[in-house]
């Protein structure tokens, strides 16, 4: 579904990500793990078109989308939930969710599904997104992405700024989406949560893929355990 080949991308001519190759098959959940500054966010911004890659290719659903602007890639069915969420603070939760379906109107069944996934939002539809807590904003951000009915959901650090309990709840919601058949690619520093959810994982260090394996093997890998799972 997604093939990233030798992608190099960065800011103002300085590449942060160097020649990364990764694939995501339909129905798969894939994790990109790595420490802060490893290039996960830059890689994701390059995939979804917010940054223009200096080298390499991104193919989504068999079509070369390299160099296309973010709004076009989004309309093709690749939804990106950034770590900073980028909600519309002066608009209500309902308006934020509905804009996911831009330029169309949201599909009622999809809206119902989002509200069943995040029941807290149902009572808050008329609250302004800017006044919500971090956990609730994360729900709105994921909800807004789902309303676009994506075929691939990219999540950058979905647990940023969340207390451990809320982080766990966020991953339970993601597990539900997985079981519904949605294809997921996520970047995460909370490595245990990410590896429990996903089928496969890539370890990113200094903008390069250091390791690529099934999530189960990564959990057993001594280096991963030492570097990311806090186990010696």
């Amino acid at each position: 579904m997604l093939e990233v080949e030798e992608l190099s991308v960065g800011y103002l001519g300085d590449d942060v990500v160097h020649g990364v190759t990764l694939t995501v098959a339909p129905g798969e959940a894939v994790a990109v793990i790595g420490s802060n500054g490893a290039g996960k966010t830059t890689l994701f911004r390059g995939i979804c078109g917010l940054l223009t890659a200096s080298h390499g290719r991104v193919t989504f659903d068999g079509e070369d989308v390299s160099g296309q602007p973010a709004h076009k890639i989004s309309r093709r069915g690749l939804a990106f939930v950034p770590a900073e969420r980028h909600l519309f603070p002066g608009m209500t939760v309902k308006e934020n969710l509905a804009l996911g379906a831009y330029p169309g109107r949201p599909d009622p069944a999809t809206m119902d599904f989002v509200l069943s996934l995040f029941p807290q939002l149902a009572d808050r539809l008329s609250q302004h997104a800017g006044t919500m807590s971090g956990g609730e904003q994360q729900m709105v951000a994921v909800g807004r992405a789902l309303v676009s009915r994506p075929r691939l959901l990219l999540l950058d650090e979905p647990t940023t700024g969340l207390a451990p309990k809320l982080a766990k709840a966020a991953y339970e919601a993601l597990a539900t989406l997985r079981s519904e058949g949605l294809t997921l690619l996520l970047a995460e520093q909370q490595v245990p949560l990410a590896l429990d959810l996903t089928d496969r994982g890539y370890v990113l260090e200094n903008g390069r893929v250091q390791l690529e394996s099934s999530s189960e093997e990564l959990r057993r890998n001594p280096e991963v355990r030492r570097a990311y799972l806090g186990i010696t």
Partner: peptide, 21 residues
């Protein structure tokens, strides 16, 4: 929807790009 799209660009341009505007 178009009017809300305009407001969304004022409030968060990157968020607007991500929803396809």
């Amino acid at each position: 929807t178009l009017g809300r799209g305009v407001r969304s660009v004022i409030q968060d341009e990157e968020g607007a790009r991500l929803v396809g505007i």
